[in-house]
Design a binder for these strands. Sequence first.
DNA 1: GCAAGATGCGACGTGTCTTGTCGCTTGCTA
DNA 2: TAGCAAGCGACAAGACACGTCGCATCTTGC
Lengths: 341, 341
Amino acid sequence: MSEIRETLFRYLTLLQLIPRSPGRIATPVLQEKLQERGFQIDTRSLQRDLRDKLALHFPLICDDDSKPYRWYFDREFHCNLPALDVPSALTLVLAEEYLRGLLPPVVIGQLAPQFSDARRLLDDMERNGLSQWAKRVRAIPNGKALLPAQLEESTWQSVAQALLEKKALDVTYLSRSREVRKSFTLHPQGLVSRHSVTYLLATVNDYDDIRQFALQRIEAVAFSNNAWRESEGFDLDDYISSGAFGYPQGSDDVRLVAHVEPQVAWLLTETPLAERQTLVPLPDSDWQRLEAEVPDDQQTLWWFRGMGASVEVIEPQAWRDDIRTNAERILSRLDKAPAGG
Amino acid sequence: MSEIRETLFRYLTLLQLIPRSPGRIATPVLQEKLQERGFQIDTRSLQRDLRDKLALHFPLICDDDSKPYRWYFDREFHCNLPALDVPSALTLVLAEEYLRGLLPPVVIGQLAPQFSDARRLLDDMERNGLSQWAKRVRAIPNGKALLPAQLEESTWQSVAQALLEKKALDVTYLSRSREVRKSFTLHPQGLVSRHSVTYLLATVNDYDDIRQFALQRIEAVAFSNNAWRESEGFDLDDYISSGAFGYPQGSDDVRLVAHVEPQVAWLLTETPLAERQTLVPLPDSDWQRLEAEVPDDQQTLWWFRGMGASVEVIEPQAWRDDIRTNAERILSRLDKAPAGG
DNA sequence: GCAAGATGCGACGTGTCTTGTCGCTTGCTA
DNA sequence: TAGCAAGCGACAAGACACGTCGCATCTTGC
């Protein structure tokens, strides 16, 4: 880095280096990091900058319990450069509504400052008699939202950091039955968020096989003294498409043919199933014939199953059979146990 | 505002006032806005700040085609204070993967700078031999992702602004059949994003009834000279729960009773259907009895329908009947047309 | 097409602010 | 108890931020 003397720029760098509330950073460390970035500055100046300049104008807090003082921002502080515009703020609000059903609250909490920044902007408009955004914007999630799994904030932070910084973790883990509690060392290889549950993929202790660990079942977590081991030849996409998350998936697309009722046809013209998709009217009815190349996965089949009697799958035959079998089993079950209402 | 003299603070305000690329702001306007915020500054100083200070250190571009020069940021520029930490960056990557199937690309584009900021941070780690995040993180969406509707960037921006700033819009709109093109004035009252289609709720011209307009069918849009009219007594939540989006919904929760197979039971212990939910083993089988208070909406029913033969709904009777009827209709349709595969 | 006003810019001088240094204090450690 | 690390007040030197002026250029309105 070339020698930068600009004061302003040093201040900005400083503001970027200081973490938000759970974290903190000591003055000497700050000085070191500034030096790495080309700012040759005296200790005294740094102290002055923090206490007499920045702390007066920002929610910047000093932890002076022990001597190398440590600095951090208020939990809620956030500042975008450039400032959010109205459409972006609206997008953030929508995004938050959707994500609330998809990611654990703690994970969304990581973005809380950004979301509240957006809400603050909209609230400010409201004070000028505008917006009333809270009454005007809604996101309706796709499909039934199950309640996201509960999860400790520190768990998410440690796991994210370990995964990306290639560190091993010592964890205490609750077994599936929720009865046995075990401790071992994990070597994180990947992370998959599926619906509202997030899984860490890792090898255990000295073993080589990849296993899944639901984050909400990790009870205690700490960086391990053991060195992280890479799992040779592990490919996350292969792993997923091999069906590890209940969605075995043929690698090739399949040709789908189905008859659909008008309402479904209309939905599909707006939001198609695939890039190339055709809908042609059927003779002697108001239904339409749908053709498309779709992925051969459980998700797509599930979608058709959910449409119920509004669609009739013609091809692939396997799906047609699946739907028939499913309907037959439902009926036989219902007939067997005619539970009165 | 009290008189603020701090240079740093003025610079920050300046950086917040300058918009990203499609937008731009003229020097005199900047001076005016600064003054509104308590920064009394000479024109000359402002010019110097922009050209000699900020533009040297930020992707700040000057449009000097015509004389009041206009300033703007590079399309991609984004800066968080404090800087993103690793867990937040990871969260953003996950959020983007999820949202890609839920919001139109253009809407997500509004947040592109934030997402690319996160990716940049992770890429930087990679250069230090860490992360390889792109190979290690996946989001598996809940349910079949239809392709989000296509939409013009300017449409989204105008609609968002009009809705929140209470302005009327002149639009050209493609009718549902995609054949008739009509022009009228809309008075926006609300916005609903449902799955991957976003609808503007508005009154038309001088009429009083609320109608829905899918954003992707708005062809041309401009702020109207007509004054915006509020729709008296309009309540978005009432509107939605009255079934306007295909999900009529009883206002009260219903008591759900169902028998579920072990795999489903397991899923529900991790991500419950509702806050209060019980699962007790059934005698003489490995299935479990599920009880919960759930919303009386189409979404929940749809979810059970998708589970197929893995669950048997006992109560409410209406749902049980719906599922039976549905299965019967599927079978009768399949038997009527035994399309060979 | 011209004049008046608006905007940009280089130069300069003043006054403020920044910054390194020094010396003292405090708290921890060996 | 000495030594070290960190924080802080004071001070002086020097950097730089800022208003002013004069000129050039562009825009606008008649």
